[in-house]
């Protein structure tokens, strides 16, 4: 059993209105000094068997086509030890 984690985040130049709303909420609950929040998504893939290079390449491909929209988002893929 292997776990692969794909993190997806809006590109820095894309406005994140949800992150901005969270900044406002953090101030209201007493956490000061937070100037910016970016909200992203995390996909945790539980995979039966080993993750070899071919499987990892496939996951990268899917991260770039389904899990993220490369026009507005960046992603990272990590194999969890």
């Amino acid at each position: 059993m292997a776990i692969v984690v794909v993190d997806v985040a809006l590109k820095p130049e894309i406005l994140d209105p949800q992150g901005r709303a969270i900044v406002g909420a953090l101030g209201r609950v007493g956490l000061s000094g937070v100037v910016d929040v970016r909200q992203g998504k995390q996909f945790v893939l539980n995979i039966d068997g080993d993750v070899d290079k071919a499987k990892l390449d496939q996951i990268h491909e899917i991260a770039a086509t389904l899990l993220s929209n490369p026009v507005i988002e960046d992603f990272t893929v990590q194999v969890r030890p």
Binding site: I14, L15, P17, Q18, A21, N69, V71, I72
Partner: peptide
């Protein structure tokens, strides 16, 4: 078509 549609800026 190019570009993307994102969350309304006022939420």
């Amino acid at each position: 078509l190019p570009g993307a549609l994102t969350r309304n800026d006022h939420l």
